[in-house]
Design a protein around this nucleic acid. Sequence first.
DNA 1: GCGACAG
DNA 2: ATCTTGTCGC
Length: 222
Amino acid sequence: MRTDLPPGWPTTIAEARALQERLCDEVVTTGGPEAPGLIAGVDVHVAERTGLTWAAVALVDGSGLELVESALAAVPTGFPYVPGYLSFREIPAVLAALSLLDRAPDLVMVDGQGIAHPRRLGIAAHLGVLLDVPTIGVAKSRLIGQHDEPACTKGSRVPLTHKGEIIGAVVRTRDGVSPLYVSVGHRIGLERAVELVLATTTRWRLPEPTRLADKLSRMHPV
DNA sequence: GCGACAG
DNA sequence: ATCTTGTCGC
């Protein structure tokens, strides 16, 4: 798995936008692992006080959903939060954390959008292209697109559309909780992405890989 | 010009 | 994301 930060990493919005417009053609929106043996969940926390961006990775067994390995890494915060450019703020830390894993994941679930993005390259899609590994975007709120309200029961879903395209699905992962925004990251189809998110969700709103990564990231040293 | 806006 | 305790609900 290629976890090195590519040379010429953008430092300005203009450079970042140019990179997104160039990389979006490399995203593969079909396929997906049938039964992923190892699924990684990633989450990031920015510590304002220390100027550090922490990334946590939770590697979960695809069948039993138990935690098999985890990693935590910090990198100096190098990019501001600008809607549409989240990857430039979080990916450096995420790659650092992924590089610490002993085993490579068959699938990565990212806290954020996949192709449900203005230029179809949200953080999950961007990370997938860099790693050349299947990824799914699992966001807690909407960035772009319109949709109806899904029924309140677990498993209910409605399409998320934008400019006449289906860019994701709004999925109720538990009865009565606010829905998740699931979108294709890389090397997977939307149907498979939604199936895998639901299959890895147990008793909480977030699927296990992402939930465990979130819990871990809240335990960063400082 | 005005409002929206992942984490 | 972050600031932040107790509290409402199942």
